[in-house]
C-alpha cells in the first residue's frame, strides 16, 4: 500500500485564525475517504493544501510523494481532479464548450467530453449556455470536469450539495464505479446521511483538528453509542418490557402502541429474540447509531478534553 496523500503534523493559520492544527493522517491508494465536519472545521482548507492552492504554516504535506505547489509540473497536476464547493463556470459558454476548454487545459482527450456529459446526465443540455443551468446541473458539470483525464486522486468538496435525491443516488453510483477503477477519492460533506456505505474511512474534523479517523464500524465501536429499537403493536399490558429492560436496555413509551428501546449494541440480538416472543407485536425497526450521532459524540469528546 502506498500513501497518496500524507499529512504530517500539518497546521495552517490565516492571520490569527488557526484553521488546522496538528493534523496527521494518510490516505492509501484506492481508498474513498469522507472528510466530515461542520462549516469551518477545516475540510476545504485541507483540500486546498492538497491542491497546492495554499501552503502549510506548520508540518508537512505529501501528495503522490511530493509537496504540492501551483508551480509543479503538468504530469503531477493533471492526475488530480477537483470539484470545488459551489462550483462556477463561464456563464456565456455552453456546457460542452466549458468542458472542452478544461479538457484542453488538462491535456485530456477532447473526445472524452461527450461521454462525460453523457455520464453525468447533461447530454441533452450540453449545448445550452451555462447561464441557463440549475444549481444541480452546474454541480454535474463540475463533476464532469473533475473526472477529465481519469485522475488518480479526486477531491470533491460538498459534491451532493444542491443535488436532488435521484441525482445524489447517481452520484454515489459514479463513486462506486470510480472505486472499481482504483481512483482515490476524498469527499467532504456536512450532510451525513447518504455517505454511509460509500466511504471506506471517515475523518471527522472539528475546529481544525482531527477528532477521529477510521472505518465507520471502528468509529462506532470506539464511540460505543447506543442503538435504538422501535416497536409497534397491540398489547393488553406492558409487563413484558421488564424482561427486555433486564438486558440493559432502557424503555421509553411514545404512546400505548409505540415503544422505543435504547441500549448497547452488544445486547441487540438478545433483545430482539425476546421481542419476537411478545404477543401482539406488529413491527420492529432497528437503528444503528447514525453518523450524525457519531459525529456529535466525537465533537463532545473533544469539547470535553478542552475543558478538562
Amino acid at each position: 500500500m502506498t500513501a497518496i496523500v500524507e499529512f504530517i503534523e500539518l497546521g495552517k493559520r490565516f492571520g490569527s485564525v488557526q484553521a488546522l492544527q496538528q493534523l496527521t493522517l494518510s490516505v492509501q491508494a484506492g481508498e474513498i475517504i469522507g472528510l466530515l465536519g461542520h462549516n469551518g472545521a477545516g475540510k476545504t482548507t485541507s483540500m486546498k493544501l492538497i491542491l497546492g492552492l495554499i501552503r502549510p504554516s506548520e508540518g508537512q504535506i505529501r501528495v503522490m510523494g511530493v509537496a504540492p505547489s501551483l508551480e509543479l509540473g503538468r504530469e503531477h497536476r493533471r492526475r488530480i481532479g477537483f470539484l470545488p464547493e459551489n462550483v462556477r463556470f463561464y456563464e456565456q459558454l455552453s456546457g460542452r464548450e466549458v468542458l472542452r476548454y478544461f479538457a484542453r487545459l488538462k491535456g485530456a482527450a477532447v473526445s472524452q467530453t461527450g461521454q462525460l456529459l453523457e455520464q453525468v446526465g447533461l447530454a441533452a443540455a450540453a449545448d445550452r449556455r451555462v447561464r441557463t443551468y440549475s444549481k444541480g446541473m452546474r454541480q454535474r458539470l463540475g463533476l464532469a470536469q473533475a473526472l477529465l483525464g481519469e485522475p488518480r486522486l479526486l477531491m470533491l468538496d460538498e459534491p451532493t450539495a444542491g443535488l436532488d435525491p435521484a441525482a445524489t443516488r447517481e452520484f454515489y453510483s459514479t463513486l462506486d464505479e470510480l472505486r472499481g477503477r482504483g481512483t482515490t477519492v476524498l469527499l467532504s460533506s456536512h450532510v451525513l446521511p447518504g455517505i454511509e456505505g460509500h466511504v471506506d474511512r471517515a475523518a471527522i474534523l472539528g475546529g481544525g483538528r482531527l477528532l477521529a479517523f477510521g472505518s465507520l464500524d471502528a468509529l462506532r465501536a470506539r464511540a460505543a453509542l447506543p442503538l435504538t429499537i422501535r416497536v409497534r403493536g397491540q398489547w393488553s399490558s406492558l409487563g413484558w418490557t421488564e424482561r427486555i429492560g433486564a438486558t440493559g436496555m432502557s424503555v421509553r413509551l411514545i404512546n400505548p402502541q409505540h415503544l422505543e428501546f435504547t441500549g448497547p449494541e452488544s445486547v441487540k440480538l438478545t433483545a430482539l429474540r425476546l421481542l419476537m416472543d411478545v404477543q401482539g407485536l406488529q413491527d420492529v425497526d432497528v437503528f444503528p447509531p447514525s453518523l450524525d450521532a457519531l459525529y456529535a459524540h466525537f465533537n463532545r469528546e473533544s469539547a470535553g478534553e478542552k475543558v478538562s
Partner: peptide, 15 residues
C-alpha cells in the same frame, strides 16, 4: 468574482 479562478488554478497551468 465569477468563482472560476480557484478551479482554473487547480488545473495544470501556472499563474
Amino acid at each position: 468574482e465569477q468563482g472560476t479562478l480557484l478551479l482554473l488554478l487547480t488545473y495544470p497551468l501556472t499563474p
